[in-house]
C-alpha cells in the first residue's frame, strides 16, 4: 500500500494531508524515497516562512542524490518535524508517517486542486515507461 487513498499528491512527489485544524501536513511519497534511496539528510523550511505554491522549500538527500521539496500549495509554515531532520532514515521506513512540515494554507480550497491517489498512481506508472 504505497499510495494511501486518503491523501493528496503532487506531480513532484509530495503527499499532503488535511488536518482537523485546517492546516496541512506535507511529506515525500514512498515512491520518491524509493527513487532516492537511503536518506541521509533533511532540511525543512523555517517556521513562519510564507511559501508560494510550487516554491522550493526543503531538501532531502540520499547518498547518491539530492532533491528539492516544493510547497504543494501556498501558505505559511507552522511546524517543521525536527525528528525527521535528526533521523532522515524515518522517511525510508515509513514515508507517510515521517512528515516534514505543516502549512497553514493561504486558501484551503487549493488542496482540492492536487492529485488524488488514482491520478498519482497513474503518474508514477507513466514515469516508469
Amino acid at each position: 500500500m504505497s499510495i494511501p487513498a486518503d491523501l493528496k499528491y503532487t506531480a513532484s512527489h509530495e503527499w499532503v494531508k488535511t488536518n482537523a485544524d485546517g492546516t496541512v501536513t506535507v511529506g515525500i511519497t514512498h515512491h520518491a524515497q524509493d527513487l532516492l534511496g537511503d536518506m541521509v539528510f533533511v532540511e525543512n523550511p523555517v517556521v513562519g516562512r510564507t511559501l508560494a505554491a510550487g516554491e522550493e522549500c526543503a531538501v532531502v538527500e540520499s547518498v547518491k542524490a539530492a532533491s528539492d521539496v516544493y510547497a504543494p500549495i501556498a501558505g505559511e509554515v507552522v511546524a517543521a518535524n525536527a525528528d525527521v531532520e535528526a533521523s532522515p532514515e524515518a522517511i525510508n521506513q515509513d514515508a507517510y508517517a515521517a512528515w516534514m512540515f505543516k502549512l497553514k494554507p493561504a486558501n484551503s480550497a487549493d488542496v482540492a486542486g492536487l492529485l488524488d491517489a488514482a491520478a498519482y498512481q497513474a503518474l508514477v506508472e507513466s514515469e516508469a515507461h
Binding site: 541521509v40 542524490a65 539530492a66
Partner: peptide, 12 residues
C-alpha cells in the same frame, strides 16, 4: 556528503 557537489546537484 557528495550530494552537495556538482555531479549530483548540478545547477544547485
Amino acid at each position: 556528503l557528495q550530494a552537495r557537489e556538482q555531479h549530483i546537484r548540478r545547477s544547485k
